[in-house]
Simulated scan of single mutants.
Amino acid sequence: PAELVEPAMQRLVAEPHGPRSTRLYPTPERWGSLPRTYIECTEDRTIPISSQRRMQAMSPGAKVVTLDADHSPFLSRPRELADALIEAASR
Rank of each mutant, 00 (worst) to 15 (best):
P1H: 13
P1G: 15
A2Q: 14
L4C: 10
V5S: 08
V5N: 09
E6K: 03
E6I: 01
P7A: 02
P7R: 01
A8Q: 10
Q10A: 15
Q10H: 14
R11S: 14
L12W: 15
L12C: 14
V13S: 13
V13E: 11
V13Q: 08
A14E: 13
E15Y: 15
E15P: 13
G18H: 07
G18F: 02
R20F: 08
S21V: 04
T22R: 07
R23C: 04
R23Y: 03
L24T: 08
P26D: 04
P26M: 04
P28F: 07
E29K: 08
R30F: 12
R30S: 14
W31P: 02
W31G: 07
L34P: 12
R36Q: 15
R36D: 15
T37A: 05
Y38Q: 12
Y38T: 11
I39V: 10
I39D: 01
E40N: 06
E40D: 08
E40I: 09
C41K: 03
C41V: 02
E43H: 08
D44P: 03
R45E: 06
R45P: 01
I47H: 10
I47R: 08
I47Q: 06
P48E: 07
S50Q: 10
S50E: 15
S50M: 10
S51C: 13
S51Q: 11
S51Y: 14
Q52H: 01
Q52L: 01
R53P: 04
Q56K: 13
Q56D: 13
Q56S: 15
A57W: 07
M58D: 13
M58Y: 12
M58T: 14
S59V: 15
P60N: 01
P60R: 00
G61L: 00
G61T: 01
K63Y: 05
K63H: 09
V64A: 01
V65P: 02
T66H: 08
T66K: 12
T66M: 09
L67E: 05
D70S: 12
H71A: 07
H71G: 03
P73A: 01
P73V: 00
L75I: 07
P78V: 03
P78E: 09
R79P: 03
R79E: 14
R79D: 13
E80F: 02
E80M: 05
E80C: 00
E80R: 10
A82Y: 06
A82H: 10
A84R: 05
A84V: 05
L85R: 00
L85S: 05
I86D: 03
I86T: 12
E87R: 11
A88R: 06
A88H: 06
S90L: 11
R91S: 13
